[in-house]
Design a protein around this nucleic acid. Structure first.
Lengths: 334, 334
DNA sequence: CTGTTAGCGCATTCAT
DNA sequence: ATGAATGCGCTAACAG
C-alpha cells in the first residue's frame, strides 16, 4: 500500500505538501495540488487513518454504548447515528451495556481505550455520580435518554413524565375509572418517570392510585404477559391497562387473547414507545410516540458540532412524546 | 495520560521491557514484571491502542456491514457479533449498506480505510464478482447470508431453499391445495432461493405453481399488505398464503383482519425468519426459524480463529431452517 | 506557497 | 532476561 512518502516522491514535492492536499489545506497552489492528486491516483493511495489518528490525536471514531442491540428500540436509533456520522466520515464503534452497571462501566473504558473522540451513551445502571465524573475527563460525552442536571447541555432525553401522563390521560378521557398499570423495572429512570406521569393523570382525573392495580414489569413481552396474568388474578375489575412500553403491551394483549378477552371491547390497552411493530399487532396498538431515532440523530449532530466543529444545526435536547391513537383503546362503557 | 515511556522511567527499566509485559511476552523475570506492573498501576497507565495498531499493523477492529440496522432482523445478529468479539477485546465498527450496490461498495472502502483486520459482510446488492475480487485483497472477508462457490470457506449461510420448501410443505401437509405466495424482492438471492423451495414443495405435492397467486413483495410490512390486497383482488380463491418473511406476513395478516377475515379459520398464513415479534402478533405466527443470531456468532468466531488465531471452535457454515408451528396455519377444510 | 524537522506511542529487531 | 535503536505513516510547527 502506497504511503504519503511514495506520493511525495512521484509528485516531486515534500511530505508536508502531500499532507496539505490530503487535509484540504488551502496553502497549496493549484498546480502542485494537481500533481499530487495525480500521483495519488496513479499509486491508488489511501491515507492510513491509524497513522493520521496517532499523529493528529483525533481518531474520527465515536463510541456508542447502548443497553441492547436486539429488540425494536435501539435499531432505529443506531441507524440514525450511523448515518449522520458516516456522512461526515466518522465511524461508530458499538458496545453493549446490558443494563448492568459493571458491564456499562467496562464498556465505557473499552470505548475510551479505543481512542474514541466522543461517547454517546444510553446507559441505565450506572450512577449519576459516575457519569458526572466521567464527563469531567477529557472525552466529550452525550447522554441519551437520561437527564442529569450537572450535565444538562449534553443530555438528550424524552419528557417521560409527560408521556406517562398522556397515556393515562387518554384512558381517563375515554371515561375509564379503573385503570391498571404495568410499569417498567423500578430501577430504571424512565420507568419511574412514566409512572409519575401516570399518577398525575390519575389524580387530575379524580382517581386514586390503587397499588393492587400496579404491577412492576421488565419492559419485555414476558413481563407484559406476567403482569396481565397477575392483574387478572387479583379479581379486581378494571377496564383499561396502560403499559409502560409496547413490548409489554403486546405481551399483555397476547394473554388477553388467550383468555378470550377481546381488545378493546373488553379491555382497553395502551403502550409506549411506538416501536415499528406496534401497528402490526392486532388490534393496532394505541401508544405514545417516543422519537428515539430523532434523539439518536440529535446526539450524532451534537458530536459533529461540538467535537468536530462541523457546523450542524441542533434542534433541541428535550423531546416531547405524543399520543398515537390506534385501535387498542376505546371509550369505556358504563 | 501516561505512556509506556513514563512507565519505563518509574519502573527503572527500558521501553522494550514494558512493551514485553504489556504483550505478555514470557521473556521477563517475575521481579521486573512486578515492578512494571506496579508502575503501571501507580500511573494508571492504559495502552494507546492507536499507537499499538500503527506499530503492529493490527487494529483489533473488525468491520461489520449490514443492510439495515432498524427492523427486527439484524439486531440479534449484531448483538452476537459484538458479544463474541468484545469478549476477546476486539471492537466492531458498523456500517450500513441499505441494499444498494454503490453504498455497499462505498461502505466496504470506508471500513477498509479504517484499518479493519477483517470484514463481516451481509450484502445483497453487490455482485459475486466484486466480492470474489475483494476477497483476493489482503483483508479477510466473511460473508453472511450469501453463498459464493469461490469463497465457500468464508460463507455463512442458511439453506433458504429448504426453508421455502418447509414452509410450503407445511401447508401442503395441512391439506391446502391452493397456496398463494408473497415473495421477497426478486433481486435478492435469499428471496429467490426461498421461492425455489416453495415451488419444489408445490410440485412434490402435485400442485402447479399459479403465477396469479404469486406476488413479489419487498420484505417489509407494506409489501405484505400490498401483496395480500393484490391477492384478494384477483378474485381467485386460496386457502393459504406463504410469506417470504415475517414482516410481510404481519402486514398480510393486518389486511385480512381489516377485511374481516379470521386467521387461521378463513386463511392460513405462514411467515419466515421467526423474528422476535412473530409470537406476539395474533394469532401467533407459524413460521420458519432463521438462526440469524447463531450465524452472526459463527462469523465472529470465524474471524477470531482465522484472523486473530484465537483458538475458537467453529461449528459450521451452513445452517438449516426449521419449521416453527404456532397458530396462524391450520388444516384446510374441504 | 513549500520544505525540513520532530515527534505521536508503541512493537520489534538486534545486541548484550 | 534486558536494553538501544529504528520505524510504522502521518501531522504540525517552524523556516524560508
Amino acid at each position: 500500500m502506497a504511503t504519503i512518502y511514495d506520493v511525495s516522491l512521484r509528485a516531486g514535492v515534500s511530505l508536508a505538501t502531500v499532507s496539505r492536499v490530503i487535509n484540504k489545506n488551502n496553502n497549496v497552489s493549484d498546480k502542485t495540488r494537481q500533481k499530487v492528486l495525480e500521483a495519488m491516483a496513479e499509486l491508488d493511495y489511501r491515507p492510513n487513518t491509524i497513522a493520521q489518528s496517532l499523529a493528529s490525536n483525533v481518531s474520527n471514531s465515536v463510541g456508542v454504548l447502548v443497553s441492547q442491540l436486539d429488540g425494536p428500540y435501539y435499531g432505529p436509533m443506531m441507524a440514525e447515528i450511523e448515518a449522520a456520522l458516516r456522512a461526515q466520515n466518522k465511524h461508530v464503534i458499538i458496545a453493549v451495556g446490558h443494563s448492568d452497571a459493571a458491564v456499562e462501566q467496562d464498556s465505557v473504558e473499552f470505548l475510551l481505550s479505543r481512542g474514541c473522540d466522543a461517547l454517546i451513551l444510553d446507559v441505565e445502571a450506572v450512577s449519576d455520580d459516575y457519569l458526572v465524573k466521567l464527563s469531567q475527563r477529557s472525552v466529550p460525552i452525550v447522554l441519551i435518554n437520561r437527564y442529569i442536571q450537572a450535565m444538562e447541555p449534553c443530555c438528550i432525553y424524552l419528557n417521560n413524565e409527560l408521556g406517562g401522563y398522556l397515556a393515562t390521560r387518554h384512558m381517563v378521557d375515554l371515561g375509564h375509572r379503573s385503570i391498571a398499570y404495568i410499569s417498567g423495572p423500578k430501577n430504571k429512570h424512565d420507568a419511574m418517570e412514566r409512572l409519575v406521569g401516570h399518577q398525575r393523570a390519575l389524580a387530575e382525573g379524580g382517581l386514586v392510585f390503587d397499588p393492587a392495580l400496579y404491577i412492576e414489569g421488565d419492559y419485555k413481552e414476558e413481563g407484559g404477559e406476567a403482569g396481565m396474568l397477575a392483574l387478572l388474578q387479583t379479581g379486581k375489575s378494571f377496564s383499561a391497562v396502560v403499559c409502560a412500553n409496547d413490548q409489554m403491551a403486546s405481551g399483555a394483549i397476547a394473554v388477553c387473547l388467550q383468555r378470550g378477552l377481546v381488545i378493546p371491547r373488553d379491555l382497553s390497552v395502551i403502550g409506549y414507545d411506538n416501536v415499528p411493530f406496534a401497528k402490526y399487532i392486532s388490534p393496532k396498538l394505541t401508544t405514545v410516540n417516543n422519537p428515539i431515532h430523532e434523539m439518536g440523530k440529535m446526539a450524532a449532530l451534537w458530536v459533529l458540532r461540538h467535537v468536530y466543529a462541523d457546523d450542524q444545526t441542533l434542534v433541541n435536547n428535550v423531546f416531547e412524546p405524543e399520543l398515537v391513537v390506534r385501535g387498542s383503546a376505546i371509550r369505556a362503557v358504563n
